[in-house]
Amino acid sequence: MNLFRLAGDMTHLFSIIVLLLKIHATKSCSGISLKTQELYVIVFLTRYLDLFTRFVSLYNTVMKIVFIGTSFAIVWYMRYHKVVKQTYNKDEDTFKHYFLLLPCFVLALLLHNEFTTMDVLWTFSLYLEAVAILPQLVLLQQSRNIDNLTGNYVFFLGAYRGLYVLNWIYRYFLQDHRARWIPWISGLVQTALYADFFYYYILSWKKHEKLKLPA
């Protein structure tokens, strides 16, 4: 464990807390894509299959349970909470996210480390996580006003995998010199997808203006 990885995990956890805070405090999920949240549930379930079979560290186990639990809670809020679900605007959340599942699964069947159920699903979860933010970014571009909490949520969510890239650089050059092409490339694609969001987010922050993404 190095500082970049810890910072990445904490940033990821913080993004989820910001989202839960927004939904719980404002009893609203406007501007949030349910499709991205559903994809994250699939990402965590397929990534943490070894939750009970392999013990890496107490930290890993606790974080895996927190990520699975909070992502379920967010989907539950947006689908079933009597007040929150009214604020979900499915007409804005238009991305066909199920179209992402098959290509990621096929790619995992073709490109993986070992052809075992665990490894193929773990690889699938990395490919899926790289593109899971697409429905949310599309929604942000369509929704006129992006509230601060939603903007912060997406920013921290994008920053976490960027910190993981630094963690991978650190590990490769200073620790085990092991090439991990699958997480590296997936993580870079994932971070790159946020590039224009980061640009407009930092621009709006500098100019103390409301965040607006060009359509």
Partner: peptide, 10 residues
């Protein structure tokens, strides 16, 4: 070994 090492992150 390979598999152990690969899945040690979140």
């Amino acid at each position: 070994d390979k598999d152990e090492d690969q899945h040690d992150e979140l």
